[in-house]
Structure formats: structure tokens, C-alpha cells
Design a protein around this nucleic acid. Structure first.
Lengths: 154, 154
DNA sequence: ATGATACAAAAACTCTATTTTTTGTATCAT
DNA sequence: ATGATACAAAAAATAGAGTTTTTGTATCAT
């Protein structure tokens, strides 16, 4: 029943995008409808809708079209298995960045930088530091005595 | 035993920060030691170490001091319960952004924008769109017929 | 209705020059 | 050793002019 392909008007109504945007995005290859009528009119599939919706969200999040394109480039570069990133992946968008979460990893779709500070790592750091202290044990106690002036500090 | 307070040298050795940085950060209020000796010498607590370490990580991640300060401001604004964000919270840093994860929410510590695209939401959107279609049912089928030219499109 | 085109306004980007921040090095007093 | 200070180099932020991109509006042909 709703195997549907959607016309421009419908897509505009559903996604909140303007006709102008749809045609420009089509022209520039950002989101291209998956099929056309014999008459050459665009017909958007459901997955197209999702791509459009995602792109609009990115736009609403102040990510410019140019950046969205960069995202798509690095996404297909880093995740070649993803045919249509805007459809398949989940993104965290904020400020200047589009974060992509993929399994254990997270990376910035704009720069490709893979860079995460997981909670666990911070906890591990505390231990690491604690373990580092013995090396300083000598200096430490020495200074502690010398700095006895500090006295009641706690 | 290791209830310790740490001297400048020790802190520098442990965190990898320079003396200059420690004093500048102290002076500008980025990370201030929790206590001083009677002689007026800084003594960093363990939680100070963590704050310093976190700040250094942000620096290494190309977040400038100025941005780190902005982060701290919005963090204490958005999460007033967090006394020392650099110690308590876990951050995801990438590119230009410092993401803060706090329970279900995530937001950009730089802009304060709270903006996340969870996977679940995307799935829900699909349903939402599907539910929106009936409203367009009339146009839809009408257009489908008219656009019968499209024929074999599937 | 759709698509193509043209023109103009708005938004975003680039590049450069300038200013401010941050850090290193060195010196001095405690 | 620590902290304070001063000077200079490096890094980052800011401001502005000029360019490109994106979008709205309108017109026309199918």
C-alpha cells in the first residue's frame, strides 16, 4: 500500500523543506531522489525522505550544506559500507561538529578525527596517577616534611 | 599515607604540565590549588591533579584555554550541582566541541546547545512520517494516478 | 504540478591584518 | 624549590573585505 514514492509537494509538506531546496539539493547531489517518472519528474522513496529529514536536521543544527557534504565524504571514506550515511547512521550534532557513533568508536565526521574520552578512561587515569606516585615517593615525603609549614591544610 | 598534597614539581612531573602553565592557570583561575602552605606555596590536592589532567587533555585535543574556560562557565551554569566539572564530568572532545554527557542528555559545553540525535529518535521519526502520510492520502493517490507515467518505478 | 531559469537577498566561507592569549626562558627575591 | 616579574615567540581569537553558496521569489514552458 504505502510502498510509495513521493512527489515534490508531498515531500515538501512532510519534511518541511522548500521546493527550492529540494531542487538545489538534487542539482548539487546532496540528496538525489532514487527514481524518476518517465516524464522526468522526481519521485522520492521513503529512504529519501529520511535522508532529507536528516539533512534538514543538520541544517537546523547550524551545520551548513557545505559541511554536510564534507560529512558525507568522510563518512563514506571511513565507513565504506554505508551507502547512504544520512539514512543509516546516527549522528550527534552540536555546534560545529557532527559526531558519528559506530560501535565502540566515535569520530568527527567533519575532520575524521577519532577522539573520545570515555568515562572508563578517566577512572583508569586516576589509578594510573596513583600508581605513578610511588616513583615520586622520595621527593614526596621529603617535601612533605619540608613543607610542614602547611600544617593544618586539609 | 597518600592523603597527599602535591608540590609544583610533583604536579609537573605527574601531569606533564610546565611550571609556567601551572602558575598561569592559577593566576587566571583555570585550575586553582585547593590549599596553600603557610608560606604561600601552592599545594595541589588529588582532585586538583585530575582537573589539571583533564584540562591538559582538552588542550591536547586542540581546545584552547579560552574555550576551556567557556566550557567551565556553561558547565557550572547548566549543571550547578557540579562543583568542579573538570573533575566530575566525562567529556567527549572532538574538533571544536566539548560534548557533555549527563544522564540522557548531551550538550555542547561551548555553546550550551543541547542537541542530540539519538538512534531511537530517528526510528520514531519514521513512524511519525508514516502516520503523517494518511493526511496526504488524497493528494497522494491522485498524484500517483496522474503520475502513472512513472509506470515501472518500484 | 513540475522543472528550468534568472535575479537578488541572506548566509557561509576565505583570506588577511591586527590584537589578545598563552607559553618559554631567564632573572631575582624568599 | 617556589613564586613573581619581564620580555619575546607561538598560538589563538577578532575584525573586515571580498567571494561563493544557498535560498526565496518570480516567470515561463511542459
Amino acid at each position: 500500500m504505502t510502498t510509495g514514492l513521493f512527489s515534490r509537494q508531498q515531500v515538501a509538506a512532510i519534511t518541511g523543506l522548500s521546493s527550492r531546496q529540494l531542487s538545489y539539493w538534487r542539482k548539487t547531489g546532496l540528496v538525489v531522489p532514487q527514481c524518476y517518472t518517465a516524464g522526468g519528474h522526481a519521485r522520492y522513496s521513503f529512504s529519501d525522505l529520511i535522508a532529507l529529514r536528516t539533512a534538514k536536521r543538520l541544517l537546523d543544527a547550524k551545520i551548513s550544506l557545505q559541511r554536510i557534504r564534507i560529512c558525507l565524504q568522510s563518512l563514506t571514506r571511513f565507513l565504506p559500507t554505508a551507502d547512504r550515511p544520512l539514512v543509516e547512521l546516527s549522528l550527534v550534532v552540536t555546534g560545529d561538529v557532527v559526531l558519528v557513533f559506530h560501535g565502540q568508536h566515535a569520530f568527527d565526521a567533519l575532520t575524521g578525527q577519532q577522539w573520545v574520552f570515555p568515562i572508563a578512561e578517566l577512572a583508569a587515569d586516576v589509578d594510573k596517577m596513583r600508581r605513578q606516585l610511588p616513583e615520586q615517593g622520595d621527593l614526596f615525603s621529603a617535601d612533605q616534611k619540608k613543607a610542614g609549614e602547611g600544617g593544618t591544610a586539609r
